[in-house]
Amino acid sequence: MKIIVPIDFSTNSVKALEFALGLHRGSKTSIVLCHVVEMIYDFASQTALALDNMHSDARKLLEEMVDKYSIGPIEIHSEIIEGTPSINVTRLAEELDADLIIMGTHGMGGLKKILVGSTAVNVIRETTIPVLLVPEESSTEQIKNLSFALEVADHEEKFIEKVNSYASIWGLKIQIIHIMKSRSFVKEMALNGLKSYFEKEIGYTPTIHQLESENVISGIKTFLEKNPESILAMCHTQKSIWDQLLGKRKSIEMAYQVRVPLLVMV
């Protein structure tokens, strides 16, 4: 597996690297530490000098990180690129044909509301590669389950096998979360069909949790408060510009609120 870990040398980005190492210990994995030097718009001479210094400082810090964390079968490399972080992280991940992007998030509740334009959220919006958002306080020692929130919709089928492969690599059990406003026979049948699909196509029988809630986000948060030893997985489909103006996808909304790692399937 090839993983991109954006590094800005903050505590939360280093925690994301440590989380990535913990998830993949013992497995053949390649991790690329990606540091983006943001362009400075100033006088030309000052800009050139500042960029040279930033490259030099970043190169030294990355080399120290590679030396410190290069343990076992996991290979660690580093890249320094210039430009807008979200655009360049996304571009690098696609150029290297990465399987996953793992990023740190701020604060006890994951991404804070004030960070609407943050790198992590913009990467989710721009990338075609799954993104794992890791809150600062997360530890792989606490993680036992991969909790997959599903609407039981057509667009989710393509993500099921990939989520199963992550669970297998990480040594986690899959459990399905389905939030509904009220129980119905049709929904019960759909979930039974989902269980049969897993058994037939994946060869795995997941635990299915059906929860009643007027609001999907609130329902998932309530479940996670009782089951904090989880990575939450959600499907994200890109919206048109008009949809973006009218509202957010649930996966992005969850990024602002959950205290567990969030795997966004795109």
Rank of each mutant, 00 (worst) to 15 (best):
A44H: 09
V66T: 08
L51I: 15
E18L: 03
I31N: 01
G22A: 09
K15I: 06
C34T: 14
V89E: 01
I87M: 11
Y41L: 14
Y69N: 05
D52F: 13
N53Q: 15
Q46G: 11
L49K: 12
L23F: 10
D57A: 09
M39Q: 14
Q46D: 08
E79T: 06
E82Y: 02
T29H: 00
L61F: 09
K60L: 13
I76L: 08
T47S: 06
S27F: 11
L62Y: 03
D42F: 11
S56H: 10
L17G: 01
A50Q: 07
M65T: 08
E18R: 09
I40S: 08
L33S: 01
S56F: 11
A48S: 10
A16N: 01
L21T: 02
A93Q: 02
R59Y: 06
A58N: 01
L62T: 02
A93R: 00
V89H: 00
G72C: 04
D97I: 13
F43A: 10
T47M: 12
T84F: 07
Y69K: 08
A50V: 09
L62E: 02
N53L: 15
E63Q: 14
H35E: 00
S78R: 08
S78N: 06
R91Y: 04
V32F: 09
I87N: 08
S45C: 07
D57W: 10
Y41K: 10
K68D: 09
I80C: 05
M39F: 13
S27C: 07
T47Y: 07
N88H: 11
L61H: 12
S86L: 04
P73G: 03
T90M: 10
L96H: 04
H55R: 12
M39E: 15
E95I: 12
V89P: 04
L51Y: 06
R91S: 06
D42V: 15
G72F: 04
R25G: 07
P73H: 06
G83M: 05
T29A: 05
I74F: 07
S45H: 15
F19H: 01
H77V: 14
S30I: 10
H77D: 12
L17Y: 03
I71E: 07
D42G: 09
L51S: 13
V66W: 06
S86E: 07
A20V: 06
I71M: 06
H35G: 01
S45I: 11
F19E: 00
T29N: 01
